[in-house]
Simulated scan of single mutants.
Amino acid sequence: NVNKANAPDDISFFVLKNCSQQIVEPLARTFSNSIRLGKVPAQWKYVNVVPIFKKGEQSEVENYRPISL
């Protein structure tokens, strides 16, 4: 949905959807090189993890699950 909030990298979904044909080749090259070399860019190793409440007592850690944004 292009009306949702931006991803953590601040690239809007509208831009990604409308520019997909132009960015697919550079992204594919980047992913292929990463796999071939066995390395990933340092930025790819950072995630934004948010605890989401499942059920039960909110004061217990076991009742939350991690979601990576």
Rank of each mutant, 00 (worst) to 15 (best):
V15H: 08
K17W: 10
L16T: 12
V2D: 06
K55P: 00
D9K: 07
K4W: 14
V50Y: 00
K55T: 00
V49H: 00
G56I: 02
E25F: 09
N33W: 08
V49A: 01
P51S: 01
Q22D: 06
V50D: 00
K45V: 01
N18D: 06
N3S: 05
V40L: 06
L37E: 07
G38C: 05
Q21D: 09
L37I: 09
W44F: 05
N6G: 11
N3I: 05
L27M: 05
N6P: 07
Q21R: 01
S59N: 10
F13S: 14
S32I: 09
N48K: 04
R36I: 13
S59A: 13
Y64R: 03
I67N: 07
I11C: 09
Q58K: 15
A5H: 08
R29W: 09
R36D: 14
K45I: 04
V40W: 08
S68N: 11
Q21P: 00
T30D: 04
R65H: 05
F31Q: 06
Q43Y: 12
F53E: 02
S34M: 05
V61A: 04
I67V: 11
L16E: 09
L16A: 14
E62C: 09
D9S: 03
L27E: 04
S68L: 11
D9A: 07
S59P: 11
F13A: 14
N1S: 14
V24M: 12
D9C: 06
V47K: 10
V61D: 01
